[in-house]
Design a protein around this nucleic acid. Structure first.
Lengths: 232, 232
DNA sequence: GACGCTCTTTGCCCCGGCGCAAACAGGGCC
DNA sequence: GGCCCTGTTTGCGCCGGGGCAAAGAGCGTC
């Protein structure tokens, strides 16, 4: 698409190591699409027609269970590929991607993937690494859910969010997109109520500062100790 | 290595679509190694020197937490690649692979991976699909642990084991390798005691049949209904 | 054939965290 | 400025399932 400049994707890991001309060629096949806050980029179980690279914004990726419960898979930050169901051999999207703020993504038709992967071998290798690190993350999550009590899981989740989407402010580190207690609950396998209680307790100890769809880590180090299981 | 015949890997998905000559070339670079029951193929945090394809046997892959708890990541069955830490950008193995029965694997040096992936593009594509389906599995597990109570999780785990390693016998489906209640607990995020209680209850209803390191599913369909959340 | 190791079962108690319910508060919108 | 919608807090009671403890049972070994 005209108007998508190479500099926009200079730091996109999935394009790492590709020659500038190759990146230009890839970009020529992409569309740049805007998704308004509150809309879905794609929905679970719908045909995996496209894959994407997020340029701006924040997406919440979640799975819906048959009985209507949501589980947050991850939040997508700019520079990440997403929606690569086709590349991993799925015909449909395994989850829904929802824009939590106004977002812009590059969009390629999934049908182009086999050709692109064959033409630019680095693309498949990079994608393999991306998927691999998501696999690591998922396993980490399984281990946490198997062995840690709720408080530690919430601490881990907040630290991860801060690392991925933290904005340093004088009061500490603020998660830089609107996130609810419910979201945190769905990331950690607990309930809205329990998350609220945990955060309230932490707030009274000065570890965090809350607000509507807002979380600030006032004392990341103490949270880290909590996450690692230090008593108290 | 001499003596490794192409027919041994005819049904290995990671080699799917490769030309017979290419498979022969790959096999020439591999060693065939035997691992006695009870030994480790590799250990968590050790340098990822090799990657593998399992030819015979069964491996239990698990992660060890800092405080000594184990979490089973998966069981490896013949035909699967494993230990591909290097391919997904890790310098060390993220888990330990333990032979639960005498096992044989093809072994390649990890250092050869970049060259192999570049030489045989199909290899990277197939590996991407493999890693992708493991990612799916891991997410499924996260969803189950987030939304299902223990009994359903155990039912799901047994059905998965039966599909992957089930031997049909007149009494039902038997898991065809030695597996302990502790293993099932570590797969489902619960305790040995709770798994034992659940299986005892099911045995008294005729759903399963137990034994030392032995589980037989007598009524897979009822178990399936249980796993899907049907009451009773 | 007896011993010992590992795996399994079961009883009992307790508690982390969930469910329910109700009150409370930002903040967007008219 | 007031209303309403959505998100948050908090109290209370209960219970699934974990912890602890101890007894029982395959199975390999000498």
């Amino acid at each position: 698409m005209a108007g998508v400049d190479r500099s926009l994707v200079a730091n996109v890991p999935v394009f790492a190591g590709l020659a500038p001309e190759q990146i230009d060629q890839l970009l020529q096949e992409a569309q740049s699409v805007r998704y308004a806050k509150g809309t879905n980029v794609f929905q679970q179980d719908e045909g995996a027609h496209s894959f994407f690279v997020l340029l701006h914004g924040r997406l919440r990726v979640f799975k819906l269970t048959p009985d209507g419960q949501q589980v947050v898979v991850r939040f997508v930050t700019p520079g990440e590929v997403f929606g690569i169901a086709m590349a991993i051999g799925r015909a449909t999207y395994p989850a829904t991607a929802h824009a939590v703020v106004d977002s812009i993504a590059l969009v390629w038709p999934s049908a182009a993937w086999p050709r692109l992967a064959a033409t630019y071998p680095g693309l498949a290798v990079n994608t393999l690494q991306t998927v691999g690190s998501r696999l690591q993350d998922a396993h980490t999550r399984v281990v946490e859910m198997s062995t840690e009590e709720v408080e530690r899981r919430v601490a881990h989740a907040l630290l991860r969010l801060a690392r991925q989407s933290g904005r340093g402010i004088e009061a500490g580190i603020e998660i830089d997109f609107p996130i609810t207690r419910q979201d945190v609950a769905e990331m950690t396998g607990t309930t809205l109520h329990t998350v609220s209680r945990v955060l309230s307790a932490w707030e009274s100890q000065g570890l965090v500062e809350g607000g509507r769809q807002r979380i600030i880590l006032r004392d990341p180090h103490k949270l880290f100790l909590l996450a690692e299981g230090s008593p108290g």
